[in-house]
Amino acid sequence: MAFIKRKKEQMHQNNIVYKKNRLQSILLSQDGMGVVEVILIIVGILTTYYGVSIKCIT
């Protein structure tokens, strides 16, 4: 019984360490979305949600 309990605790600790390392790598990553991508996503969401049409300058 003690072996199973120790194994579960070890698995839990390994999971915590993995999640911490994963979060750290995501936050420190230089790959990410730029300002242009964020603006395009927001415009895309707002135009479909509010039914706003974007008119191009001609």
Rank of each mutant, 00 (worst) to 15 (best):
E37S: 14
G44N: 10
Q30P: 00
E37C: 04
V35C: 09
V17C: 05
R6T: 04
C56A: 10
K20R: 15
V17R: 13
K55D: 08
Y49K: 10
A2W: 07
M1G: 12
N21H: 05
K8D: 05
S53I: 02
I26D: 02
I16T: 01
I26L: 10
V35S: 03
M11W: 08
L23C: 06
H12W: 04
R6S: 12
G34I: 01
S25H: 12
D31F: 14
R22N: 13
T58S: 09
D31K: 03
S25P: 02
N14K: 02
N15V: 12
K7H: 00
I39Q: 15
I26Q: 12
D31V: 13
F3S: 03
Q10P: 00
V38C: 02
K5H: 11
S29W: 04
S25K: 13
K55C: 03
K8L: 11
L40S: 15
I16G: 01
Q24D: 00
F3V: 13
Q10M: 02
V43I: 15
L23S: 06
G44I: 11
N15S: 15
T58D: 10
R22H: 11
I41L: 02
L23N: 10
K20Y: 13
R22K: 14
V38Y: 07
H12V: 00
N14Y: 00
V43P: 06
Q13V: 07
I54Y: 04
K20P: 01
L40F: 10
V43S: 11
Q30D: 06
I45E: 08
I42K: 00
K5R: 14
K19N: 13
V38P: 00
R22E: 15
F3N: 02
Y49S: 08
T58A: 05
N15W: 15
C56K: 14
Q24P: 02
I4Q: 13
E37L: 05
E9M: 13
Y18F: 07
V38D: 05
I41Q: 14
Q30R: 06
C56H: 10
H12F: 08
I16V: 15
S29H: 05
I4Y: 08
I42C: 01
S29M: 11
L27Y: 09
G51N: 01
N14G: 06
S53Q: 11
G44C: 02
V38R: 02
L40C: 03
Y18A: 08
L40Y: 09
Y18S: 09
E9N: 14
G32Q: 10
D31N: 14
Q13E: 04
G51T: 11
Q10E: 09
T47I: 15
G34H: 06
R22T: 07
N15P: 04
T48V: 13
L27H: 09
A2T: 09
G51H: 12
Q24S: 10
V17I: 08
L27F: 10
I54M: 03
I57E: 13
N21A: 03
C56P: 06
Y50C: 07
C56L: 12
N14I: 01
Q10R: 02
K20G: 02
V52E: 08
I41H: 01
T58C: 04
S29K: 08
L27C: 08
Y50P: 00
Q30W: 01
